[in-house]
Amino acid sequence: MDASEIAEWLRRSTRSSEEHGRRSILRFWNPEDYDKFVQTLRADRLRAKPLRNIRRLSLIRAVSCPLFPEDLPPSLIGKAYWEEDVPMRVHALPMGTIVTDTGVPWGVKHIQAPLAWSRTTGYRVKVGVIDTGVDFEHPDLRHSLERGINLLQRMYPPQDDNGHGTHISGTIAAANELDGIIGVAPRSKIYPVKAFDHNGTAFVSDIILGIEWCVRNQMDVVNMSFGMKTRSKALLNAVNYAYHSGVLIVASSGNDGRIGEIDYPARYNHTIAVGATNLQRRIAPFTNRSPSIDVYAPGDRIVSAWPRGKHREMSGTSMATSHVTGAIALLLSLKPELTPAQIKAIVKSSAKPLRNGKALRAAGELNVMRMIKAADRY
């Protein structure tokens, strides 16, 4: 492989691609080829401005760059492949209202989390939340937050400029009994990974970098309340790497009301795919559903934390996913030795059958007490 030829090809291609805002992921099959390319890139990027926008995705031996190539250069054929670095969005419906009601939200009660708190509160379980960041000043979260990382601006903390990440974090780990809300696992630790901008948009490469950070910093479980319709082989490789490293990813199915298919990354086998239910214990009309769903959880009219110390009601499979992530934190606090495969089996086997069950609805609804009882057999 001629690394210099590839670097020159990237210089030419990135100049034109930057104007169109398109990005690609270039992944190397051979670790030696990837290492050789990275060395060349380090040497050339100071001299060539277009190369400065190339980001390394070491977890999967790839780079992300403002590039949409027609053809690979000859020295890359058979040694690398490329795919478009697709944008994706967080999974939430239009915002609900700001509310003043506090206490234990209905979803947290519904999955019977409070009944488990005499045994487990998620103490010291590390939860990565790849999202829009978090409100570090929120009184419901100040005892639950660790530093995390801002992947968009590395020199700044992962402060939430959207609200979605704060809402997700509140359902998982809020701990303000007197004036705020209580989350599913109030003594777990949230590590916010800001990969999404203020519009709730990120590229696949941002998510891969977030997964890489979570693996390197030994998260126990990762919440990914977002998705896309496109299958990404690069993202699949990152998800699989996390799974085999002992880091379980919980992902939302999407809010398009589709029957028969769900969004990626929830659609990958090595995630826990989550759909949403409502107060009547029925599948919410907005949730995507298919046999790929592993479990359903409350996702309709969920009250949680919101920036500037507020609380907001929101709906979406994002909200359902955070209930499942919190429940897994409760489980891991009791049984930290459980593998991702064992956790997924426990969550699925202990789920409570839904009302008006049909053949398509193979999955049941999350129930913490049933889950803990099932885990006692491991």
Rank of each mutant, 00 (worst) to 15 (best):
L209D: 06
R147F: 12
N255K: 08
S253C: 15
F286W: 00
A375Q: 06
R142H: 10
E32Q: 07
D220L: 01
M314V: 13
K36H: 12
K373Y: 13
G309W: 05
R355G: 01
R47M: 03
M371T: 12
A113S: 13
V215Y: 08
L41D: 04
D263F: 07
H91A: 15
H270T: 08
L330S: 05
I293K: 01
S118K: 12
G260Y: 09
K109T: 12
L338R: 11
F28S: 11
I207R: 02
A234N: 02
V250E: 10
L59R: 09
S350M: 01
M219G: 00
L51V: 03
T120Y: 09
E365S: 12
S252N: 09
G133E: 03
T339D: 05
Q153A: 08
T100D: 14
R22A: 08
G326L: 09
D206M: 02
G21L: 14
V222I: 15
S322G: 00
R55M: 00
T171Y: 01
N53Q: 07
R355F: 04
F136M: 15
N53C: 01
W29Q: 03
V184E: 09
K348E: 13
V303I: 13
K79D: 06
A113E: 13
G183Y: 10
P340F: 08
A174E: 14
E84F: 07
S225C: 10
G200Y: 06
Y191N: 14
A242K: 04
R301H: 08
L334E: 09
P336W: 10
D85N: 08
A363Y: 07
I262N: 08
V274Y: 06
R12F: 07
R147G: 05
V274Q: 04
P69N: 07
G180K: 15
R27I: 12
E146P: 01
L248V: 07
I54D: 01
N53V: 03
L279C: 01
R12E: 09
T166N: 04
T121W: 04
A92F: 13
R308P: 00
T97L: 13
L76Q: 06
E18D: 02
I98S: 06
